[in-house]
Design a protein around this nucleic acid. Structure first.
Length: 773
DNA sequence: CAGTGAGCGAGCTTCCGCTTGACTT
């Protein structure tokens, strides 16, 4: 009489559930999928109905062994993986890998981790839904076909190590196309009128003209009309308004809000949330659901009643808006609403607070507002000025939580209360301003706003949003960057004391913080894919195949037929592209004619990055080459900027009979002398560094280097004790060795260094998951 | 922290979704 075995996906979940079930149940976790297509093999037999070969993943061997043992002695095995496509497949893979018997294997599902839900699930077991499993297999195999057939084309035609896929390639496309919109964008300006009235007693009233003027002339004409005019309140209108709380967090909205309010990159948000989840503080953090369990809603309600009063509570049920949501879990919420703060460090505490507030607010009453609009007539012209104010009559959920937006145009939003006014009241104009404003280009994506966009399009899943962003950055398709703004002039006309003055002002515009910019590689790869594989990288591709997966899941379509149809149109395109030459895939751009030589200047993407070239390969005089600098894009670099690149590296002068060279390297501008490098400050232009400055820098660097070496040894010239960024360390040939706390760096002997070096393991490669062939 | 940019070819790279730890410069 063995126990019953329940297998779930996550160990934290297993622990919670074990607490709900009696002694007769042992709850274990599979740690997600246990089998998959191996990484180092295509593993799909195209000829044989796309038969996949699954392997138990290397890091799951122990898990499978352990589960198999437990299953063998269990009375009943309950497969309790998530209630969605992937979860069904996990159960199926488990039944295969663990060689379970149909007779004592049950499939159970629940969408919330509450005692009731679990017990209910145990009372309603079913079998594995093989149609749903097949939908997952179709998804898996399609992704493998696309990824593993497209990527090698990129290696051959563009650069090794590149990758393409159903999700990542669309993400890159979004960033590239947004950049093109921005490049194409032309700002137009208009003049906005703001009036300030003096109400006496130190009080003022701010009003605006609802429409803007297109030209400075129009604005000036208007202001002229206003000279000496009388201003009267013609109408006062008060309207009730309300605000409604946002639903509790999903993975995507949590990432967005943590990005806006806490400046967290999406990967940090996920790892901090993971810690809170493992500590039992929050519900599962990879979810696309906005639902809360009835228990959670009740608990939120009593917490709200206790802290703020029962008039603040309002039970709400939200509906998901995103395409393809599978809703296998609850929304992200605190496990216990009475815990108002939790977390081991400030990051955890701040994220918890955000989650707590958002979930609590989602069950709170609307905020009741009163909006007042005052219309102000001008005696000399029919145009009306408008002043708006807002009063909160009942705070409702605003007591706890205010959602932020991506909109940067928020400066006008601080509507306060209006001072007491009455119809017919005459107003005393203090000042009227016509300020020139400019239209803005569409915003560049942040990590989080790109995730939002992907989710809206139904591309990717909660568990892959953060990894997708990491992948496109790692492949160097996009870069996360901040850029300083540039100064821009604008006009301001001020009417004061019956006279109009014109001022030329300047403002900083176009500053960007942590935005995603496409790289040259990203642009070239994207254009290649768009040209040769338009269907696969189409924005609606995922939506279309998802529809077909749904048909497979309901048993209407056979999965091998669906994959066959796809492959029959996809693979010929792959064959076709193998014919094209690299030069066609990576087309050169003609930037312009070099006035000095009369030759054409080209922009190209080489194996080592983007470069410009003057002249042709075939000509007798070989072409000159120069690499592009960070942030320069091949597709819009100007001829001037391209020619500028040929001025570096440049000989600045000489020192100790050796030349000093200034150039720009991978880490920024530098000067080189006698084989040694000195970095220049970021704002220092290597084109204008003088010989004197350069020599000074070289000498400074020498002094620094002199302090760097603590000890050298006669036994081996390749061994040093030196000062590094993180303190003293031993450099033993190629190995860097940390010095233990009980050793004094100055007193280390050669023997000791050698001993320490031998103890430290060889540096591992960046790819720790090396496969053995 | 170079100079490279064509093409050949050994041997490498690559997908998406489900999970959690190892790893340090």
């Amino acid at each position: 009489m063995g126990k019953n075995l329940v297998i779930v996906e996550s160990p934290a979940k297993a622990k919670t559930i074990e607490g709900y079930l009696g002694k007769d149940y042992e709850v274990q976790s599979s740690y997600g999928h246990v089998r998959d297509l191996p990484r180092d093999d295509f593993a799909i037999d195209i000829e044989n109905n796309f038969e996949p070969t699954y392997k138990i993943s290397a890091d799951k061997k122990d898990v499978v062994k352990q589960l198999k043992k437990l299953a063998a002695s269990a009375e009943t095995v309950y497969l309790a993986s998530d209630d969605d496509r992937e979860g069904e497949a996990i159960s199926w893979h488990l039944s295969q890998a663990l060689e379970l018997n149909d007779s004592n294997t049950r499939r159970i599902v629940f969408r919330e981790i509450t005692k009731n839900a679990i017990q209910n699930a145990l009372l309603n077991p079913r079998g594995i839904d093989i149609d749903l499993v097949n939908a997952q297999q179709a998804r898996r195999i399609l992704d493998r076909l696309v990824g593993y057939e497209l990527s090698p084309i990129l290696w051959k035609k563009i650069k090794t190590g590149l990758s393409a896929g159903r999700v990542q390639s669309v993400a890159v496309r979004l960033v590239v196309e947004r950049e093109r919109e921005i490049e194409k964008f032309e700002a137009t300006s208009s003049f906005k009128i703001t009036a300030l009235f003096d109400l006496g007693g130190g009080k003022t009233l701010k009003a605006e003209l609802p429409s803007k003027f297109k030209t400075q002339g129009d604005a000036d004409t208007f202001l002229k009309k206003c000279i000496g005019a009388a201003y009267t309140i013609e109408n006062l209108e008060t309207k009730p308004a309300k605000k409604t709380p946002a639903p509790p967090f999903t993975t995507s909205t949590l990432q967005q809000e943590a990005s806006r309010k806490l400046s967290f990159p999406v990967s940090l948000t996920m790892s901090v949330a993971q810690k809170l989840y493992e500590a039992g503080k929050i519900s599962y953090m990879r979810t696309d659901s906005v639902n809360l369990s009835q228990e959670a809603i009740q608990s939120a309600k009593s917490q709200i009643a206790m802290s703020y009063g029962s008039e603040f509570a309002q039970e709400r049920h939200f509906k998901t808006k995103s395409q393809g949501a599978q809703e296998a879990h609850e929304a992200i919420r605190p496990t216990d609403f009475s815990v108002t703060s939790a977390g081991k460090d400030s990051a955890e505490q701040r994220l918890y607070e955000l989650i707590w507030k958002r979930a609590i607010a989602s069950q709170m009453a609307d905020a009741q507002l009163e909006k007042t609009t005052a219309t102000i007539g001008i005696s000399t012209t029919p145009e009306k000025l408008v002043a708006q104010g807002e009063v909160i009559k009942f705070e409702g959920f605003l007591k706890v939580y205010i959602e932020s937006t991506d909109d940067e145009d928020d400066e006008e939003q601080q509507q306060g209360m209006l001072p007491p006014l009455s119809v017919g009241q005459d107003l005393d104009l203090k000042r009227m301003i016509a300020k020139e404003g400019f239209t803005r280009h569409p915003p560049r994506y942040t990590e989080a706003s790109l995730v939002k966009k992907l989710e809206e399009m139904g591309i990717g899943r909660p568990s892959t949003y953060a990894p997708t962003i990491s992948t496109i950055i790692k492949r160097n398709y996009v870069e996360k960057e901040s850029r300083e703004g540039t100064e821009r002039a604008y006009q301001e006309l001020i009417l004061e004391n019956g006279a109009i003055e014109t001022h030329k002002q300047t403002e900083i515009t176009g500053a960007e913080k942590n935005k995603l910019f496409p790289t040259n590689t990203g642009v070239v790869v994207n254009d290649f894919l768009v040209q040769y594989f338009p269907n696969v990288i189409d924005f609606s591709f995922t939506a279309k195949v998802e529809e077909e997966f749904d048909h497979i899941a309901t048993g209407k379509v056979d999965w091998t037929e669906m994959i066959k149809d796809f492959y029959n149109q996809f693979h010929p395109l792959v064959e076709d592209t193998s014919q094209i030459k690299r030069s066609e895939a990576v087309s050169a751009r003609e930037i312009g004619i070099d006035p000095a030589s009369g030759k054409m200047v080209y922009g190209k993407l080489g194996k080592y990055g983007a470069y410009v070239q003057i002249g042709e390969m075939e000509e007798e005089e070989k072409p000159k080459f120069a690499s592009l600098r960070a942030g320069q894009l091949l597709e819009n670099i100007s001829l001037e900027d391209a020619l500028e690149l040929f001025k570096l590296p440049r000989e600045v002068g000489s020192f100790e009979d050796k030349p000093i060279i200034a150039a720009i390297g991978r880490f920024g501008p530098y000067i080189r002398h006698d084989g040694k490098f000195v970095s220049l400050k970021k704002d220092q232009d290597p084109l204008s560094v003088s010989e004197e400055e350069a020599i000074e820098l070289i000498q400074e660097k020498r002094e620094q280097d002199a302090n760097k070496y603590i000890k050298t040894f006669d036994e081996d010239a390749e061994v040093f004790v030196l000062n590094g960024r993180y303190g003293p360390y031993i450099k033993f040939g190629k190995k860097n060795v940390k010095i233990p706390k009980d050793k004094v760096p100055e007193e280390l002997t050669f023997e000791e260094c050698k001993e320490l070096a031998e103890k430290t393991p060889e540096k591992k490669g960046r790819f720790s998951r090396r496969k053995s062939k």
